[in-house]
Nucleic acid binder design. Structure first.
Lengths: 128, 128
DNA sequence: CTTGACCTTCCCGTCACGGGAACCCTTATG
DNA sequence: CATAAGGGTTCCCGTGACGGGAAGGTCAAG
């Protein structure tokens, strides 16, 4: 099948698929006209990548996960380690954002939000 | 004062300050030797920017906030609107990350993490 | 006079694509 | 048969907010 059908079935835009080929995540065949030809296996790998990306794994983590996926002799410990490190990174991001959220909630709560210039938000940002 | 002292006092690296000048967030003077000269006001604006960035505001939001900060006739409603929109964006990011976190927690919990190849994480990613 | 610590500009790399140009291939239709 | 639509291809630029590093000018101290 061509790239747009593969994209529909894997849930990825064609641009993304071309990019994944460029960086070596997939290797679709080529027809005599130069068009990429995707096998069922290619679509399966693409869908795998789409789900891994949806969980926030970076490209290099996806590459490692895909290699483990194809390796019958893998140790699940290797997979788990990657997932746990990623989980920790996500939890750190959440903690950072939650701090911002709490401050912003407090500041917006305290701000009248009317026509007057007095504003606790700007006071906080401009605090010496 | 020169850029490194301004950076120390505002808590920003010199590279960042040069970037802020390049995109027009600040306009420090110049000495006869071509060095940037920072006033107390410059340092104050830089510190303002540093705090706004620490709350996750984007550069253009910082530009708008800085303009409102310098405007004696501002309406606090304008500031509040920017902050509330940003707050919503942050809450959306947190929700997205929390979803990933929950899935990853469940998957890593279910994974034995030993030498065997059987792995719920890869099963999930490869699910048809 | 030289050393070393500053400062300057300029350019490349980040991360994972998206937009768009310029051009080729295939299929359907008048 | 000519053409138009709707695929596909490569290539290049832009994103956000800087960081790293090169090449070179400036300044204070020993």
């Amino acid at each position: 099948m061509n790239i747009s059908e593969a994209g529909e079935r894997a849930g990825l835009p064609a641009k993304t698929i071309r990019y994944y080929e460029e960086i070596g995540l997939i290797r679709p065949g080529r027809g005599p006209n130069g068009y990429r030809r995707f096998s069922e296996g290619d679509v399966h790998r693409l869908a795998f990548l789409g789900r891994a990306r949806a969980l926030g794994f970076g490209i290099e983590e996806c590459r490692a996960l895909l290699a483990l996926y194809s390796d019958e002799d893998r140790a699940s410990a290797d997979v788990k380690r990657i997932a746990e490190e990623h989980l920790e990174a996500i939890e750190a991001k959440i903690a950072l954002l939650a701090g911002m959220r709490d401050t912003l909630r407090e500041l917006t709560r305290a701000c009248a939000g009317d026509a007057r210039p007095d504003c606790p938000i700007l006071r906080d940002l401009g605090a010496d």
